[in-house]
Simulated assay, not measured.
Amino acid sequence: MQNSHRQSTFHIYIACVGLMVFCSLLFSSCAQLPIQNYSQVLKENEHAPIYSIVCIVHGDNNYIYHDTTGNKLSADKETITQIIRVAQQNQNAEVFIFHQKPASNFLLFFPTKDGDFYYYRNGQLIANESYWRDQKESQLNPELELFNSYSADNKSEMKKIFLYFGHQIPEYGGEGYDESYPERTFTVSDLATGLINFLGDSEKFDMSILSTCYGGTPFTIDKLGALSKIIIASPENLHLSYFDLAPLEQLDEKLRIGNNISFAKNFAQNAFDKLTMNVQTSVSIAIYDVDSTKQYLNEIRMSYTNTLTNLKLQFQTFPSIVKQCDCAELPSYLLPQMNKGVTIFYRPARFGRLKNKQNHSGWECWKYDAKITNIR
């Protein structure tokens, strides 16, 4: 009787394990089926895309916020909805969407893929796959592999736009950026290294949009400026509702007939208007015409590098304790060329000690004195 009971328990255990494995394989395989194949798409859409958009949405950390009516929202999921709408509305674009999600397990034991990929071409969803993200140092290799598998052949002829949504990207260190992989590192330099391979024969992105906090630092603009003609970023803290993407929904009307700078101003103005209507904190959105900012960046590079070096010596990880401020508040950065190539949309916070600050240079620096050993 006891042996019979043990055998029954064992059979139930084997059946459960088998069911879990089957379900895991089923979910995994279903997530990787392309929606359409290329030959079918090319028959239906003979014209090559004019625009190429690469969008990375980081969701592996705390991205919960509340809207003005108190609804609880997830910033990364809201952004995915917006960028999918952009992809559907543009009949002359290819759009790559990478959603970097938290790690999770199926039935407690089986890890599931922690990245979702969408590829749209000329308004149609061509592929929707799940993929494994980098779990150590990240230079976007899994994303690049998918990009190369689906991208159109006429890369050098297209207008190229890059978008990144997430928390502030560290200028060094980078541990803990992902909640699922606390030992994994991700920095501005990692992002720049990864993006080089997305360009192929093209020299630069026509425009890069950083929807993060503190994206307008000299270091960040210097690094990503090597890969972008124009950068839109927030030099200060940015609310998790991010930049509104509505102007990207009609690229033929707004970008094709105008130049990149005029489109960037339209995008930034729209994002600024939406944010100032919905938040009480400060709002700052800057447009960097990269070539025009080079003289200023060259003159301050050594000062900023020295500051980062001293921060690294005092703080092994990227510091949250050290404050950042408008570079114009620091004498070594207040130079005649400071405003060249920078267009800033700024409104101070409705409360707090900086509520009367009426201007911002568009550059954000570390408010750090290397002589101070105990920063409070």
Score class of each variant (00 low, 15 high):
N278G: 07
T373V: 14
V54W: 15
C325Y: 10
A31N: 09
K294V: 03
D273F: 05
Q324Y: 10
S39N: 12
E44Y: 06
S228W: 04
I196M: 13
D289L: 07
L308A: 15
L191C: 10
Q40E: 09
G123T: 04
L297P: 02
S208A: 06
S130K: 08
E364Q: 06
D190W: 01
E253V: 02
D206W: 10
A328T: 06
N260M: 07
I83N: 11
T112I: 05
D244H: 04
L25I: 14
H58M: 10
D326L: 03
K43A: 10
G166R: 01
K371D: 12
C23I: 06
I14Q: 11
F162K: 01
V86G: 09
F263E: 07
S284L: 00
H11E: 15
Y119P: 02
Y120S: 07
A152W: 02
V95F: 01
Q168Y: 01
Q40I: 10
F318G: 04
D206T: 14
S332N: 13
F10V: 03
L240N: 01
T187M: 01
K204Y: 08
Y172Q: 01
N359F: 08
S151N: 00
L313T: 14
V57S: 05
F110C: 06
K323H: 12
Y63T: 03
T373F: 11
N278M: 08
